[in-house]
Amino acid sequence: MHFMNIGHAYENTARLIHAVSDEYPDADGLHAAYRAAISTPHLRPLPVEGKGISVSYEDGRWAKHCIGSGIFTNIFKGAGPSDGPTRQEWDNRVAEALDLIQEISPDLRLMVDLLVTDLVVLNSGADGGGSASHMPGVVVISPGAEWDVLDYAMCLVHEDMHLNLFVADKVYGTFTLPSNALEAEELRALSAVKIGQRRPLDKAFHAAIVTVPLMFMQDRRGVTTLVDLYTESLRDACEDLKKQRRMFTQYGQMLLDELCDFAEHIDFAHAARAISGMDYAGYRPSAYA
């Protein structure tokens, strides 16, 4: 499963950096070079600040940008003011969540460290997370009051997986049509997460993909809630996605086939090997549309 593999994330990021800067990074400089590349105005509206993950809240620069640009309107519209102790609590939980991701899979943590540059934490009145293709590196989370550290960790990895797919999509292209065309009724597919709902093809595909690391993380912690919830819905989603296989590029078809194979077997040892092994790294693009 290339979409989970840390080596594939590294090579995709290196290709994106070269496409933007005409320079090939080395692995040691990849982190900084990625931050420099996505800071160019045509790739992201605000530059990356700092070397780690910058945390801001409902009054930060990303919140202001999103509100001003009409991005994630529902989320930011409902965000109430947060006080210092609340922010400190969020920061503590995020730090613990990063440690937990490290414990579950050092390479998932490495992927978060590489791809997440900015974290906007707020209370929107509804819990969840968000990320967007034209805001590489940015993750918005609204933690639920009942969230434990694993919930925070899964939310971070969930959004990181979206960011990872966005990078791969920029570099190789996943679908043969632009995203607005994928909203057509006849191209929709069942969501593995919003169970029973037919969603635009790219969103259904993203949703199906993110179930894999989430189930893997829970399995590593001895929790079965999402495995119980998603096993059948992921298989249903895959069956529906396969009907639209012709709408995927050659690269997208590879990801789809790997996803469908996982859905068939639900093998978490395989997922672990997919994250850190070489079987899903070393991708050589052969052709572009």
């Binding site: 496409a19 529902n74 293709s133 609204s142 969930h158 959004e159 969103k203 993110v210």
Partner: peptide, 18 residues
């Protein structure tokens, strides 16, 4: 491909929002 993706819509993914 990167140029083409920048011309595409800003694809917003939201999980768990109600």
């Amino acid at each position: 491909s990167v140029r083409r993706s920048q011309e595409d819509d800003n694809n917003c993914m939201m999980g768990g929002w109600t």
